[in-house]
Amino acid sequence: MALTSRDRTRENEGSVGQMLSEVTSDTQLLFRQEVELAKAEVREEFGRAGKAAGMYGGAGFAAYMIAFFLSLAALFGLANVMDAGWAGLIVAGAWAVIGAVLFLMGRSRMRSFSPTPRQTTETLKEDARWARHPTA
């Protein structure tokens, strides 16, 4: 039995419709996967930042206690050699320098923190390039 032009048109429409459906389905799947990847990357990066912040907190408290007792020891030690007021100023000045150095170091480390999901950004750029030129 020979196919008429009408039958051929229906056959082509069916395959085009099917292909369009598959492309749409694949695009939706790809988009969902990209969103999940972005979520996972952000979750991982913020998890690391949270753990680092907790460690900073614990180290800060321990450093505070050590600094307090060492400062008292330095103050009393210097008070044996000079007036207690001058000894207090010297200890406070030393802490001002230490605080400034720690602030600068902490600021430089926080600048290296990046919440941007780099891998997702790259794959989205690749997807956009493919969408513009799917045969390339």
Rank of each mutant, 00 (worst) to 15 (best):
M19W: 09
G88W: 01
Q28Y: 09
W86H: 09
M110Y: 06
G17S: 10
S108F: 00
A40N: 11
P134D: 02
A100D: 06
S25Q: 11
A79N: 05
F76W: 09
D7Q: 15
L104M: 03
S108G: 05
Q119R: 10
E34G: 07
A73R: 15
G50M: 12
I66L: 12
L102E: 12
L29S: 15
D26V: 07
R6L: 15
F68E: 11
E122L: 00
T135N: 05
T121S: 08
L104W: 06
P115F: 01
A52V: 12
R111G: 05
A131E: 00
E126P: 01
R107T: 14
L70K: 11
L78P: 03
G99Y: 11
Q28R: 15
L124R: 01
R10D: 03
V42E: 05
G47Q: 09
R48Y: 05
G58A: 10
A84I: 09
P117G: 01
V91G: 02
A96L: 12
S114Q: 02
T120E: 01
G58N: 11
Q119N: 08
V42S: 04
A87L: 00
Y64H: 08
E45H: 06
V35E: 01
M19D: 14
E22N: 14
S21N: 12
R32Y: 01
N80S: 12
A96M: 10
R43I: 13
D7C: 06
T120V: 05
D127Q: 03
A52K: 09
Q28T: 14
L72E: 14
G85S: 05
V42K: 01
L78T: 05
G88N: 05
Y56W: 15
M19P: 03
S112L: 13
M82K: 00
R6I: 13
L70P: 03
S71D: 09
G60S: 02
I66C: 11
Q119D: 10
S71W: 00
A40S: 12
G14H: 14
S25T: 12
D83G: 01
R118G: 10
L3W: 04
F31A: 11
G93M: 06
L102A: 13
A100V: 14
R10C: 03
R129K: 10
F103T: 12
G77T: 10
G106F: 08
A67R: 08
E44H: 15
A53H: 12
R129Q: 03
G106Y: 05
A131S: 06
E41I: 06
A2E: 15
T116E: 02
R111W: 04
A62R: 04
G14R: 15
F76K: 10
Q18E: 14
F69A: 02
G54L: 15
V91K: 00
G88P: 02
I66D: 09
N80H: 06
A94P: 05
A73N: 13
N80F: 06
I90M: 09
F113H: 02
A2W: 04
V91E: 01
V23Y: 01
M1F: 12
S21P: 04
F46E: 08
A59N: 13
D83F: 00
L75F: 13
P134S: 00
A52T: 13
S108H: 08
A49Y: 04
A136I: 06
F69Q: 04
Q18Y: 14
V42G: 06
